[in-house]
Design a protein around this nucleic acid. Structure first.
Lengths: 138, 138
DNA sequence: TACTAAATGCAATACTGTTGCACTTATTTT
DNA sequence: AAAATAAGTGCAACAGTATTGCATTTAGTA
């Protein structure tokens, strides 16, 4: 991802262009899987952990990143679709966790699974968590 | 759920029958939705929080409860299917979170959704997180 | 009833997440 | 281009949840 592209992502989401935000965005685009704050602290030394924390918050608020539900208790983040804004997140997609390498990927452009819920329930959003072996590990 | 039934659940999962475990089991069977440790601490005064913590751990280990993936960072637990053991958890089911009352329910016996993953990926388990309005709130 | 392994309570610690405030920087306005 | 302003950053401190060690008590068993 080009510097220019990262800058316009920030601008499109009404976020000031700062080094920290650019670097965090770069990390996400480089690795193509979900990251925790700790992951970022490891790769992006030089930023205070509170700064990274608030950077992630602002990305969540403005629809640049989304939190991925998990059982571990530590927050993991993935890049949003282009369609996400602060008003309307569109996170109906599939999260794949590889049991070998541990990476979590957001998989887009798959057919939407049919959701069956009992009578009387109203579905607003859904999120599919799948685990198994990723392409590299299978 | 009868006392006898709770006792046999514990025995079937190779867990000693203790007051704390019986009471925790009772809580889960009464409320029919997911609970956090804090919920239990509120309703079951008299047990140390570490005891409740370890009770939940043992239930996870032996397949009585399962953790429900979420974005909040606090662990929430739901009762497992009868088929779960410490060797083989069978958690392929649907978790429904009501955006009104906040309750999380584990919904069983729904048709299995068709999972589409890109070529080369191997699915082992899946977990569906759906939010919206539950039957009571809709 | 006595024995043994497991469960419990208490104290202490680790870790993740969060807030306040002074200072710096990006953007806007003149 | 400089000044004004609103937002971002770093540091220190705090909050909440998760986790471990150890002495004591209790459940299951011989």
């Amino acid at each position: 991802m080009e510097q220019k592209e990262r800058e316009s992502i920030l601008k499109n989401h009404r976020l000031r262009v700062t080094n920290c935000r650019l670097d965090v965005l770069e990390m996400f685009s480089k690795v193509d899987h979900a990251l925790s704050q700790k992951d970022l602290e490891g790769s992006l030394q030089g930023y205070d952990r509170v700064t990274l924390y608030r950077t992630l918050q602002s990305f969540i608020d403005k629809g640049v990143l989304h939190k991925i539900p998990n059982e571990s208790g530590v927050a993991t983040f993935g890049i949003c679709f282009d369609t996400c804004t602060s008003e309307d997140h569109n996170h109906n997609h599939l999260h794949f966790k590889c049991n070998q390498c541990g990476n979590i990927e957001c998989i887009e452009n798959q057919p939407i699974p049919k959701i069956d819920v009992p009578n009387g329930y109203k579905v607003q959003h859904w999120n599919m968590i799948v685990d198994g072996l990723c392409k590299s590990c299978a």
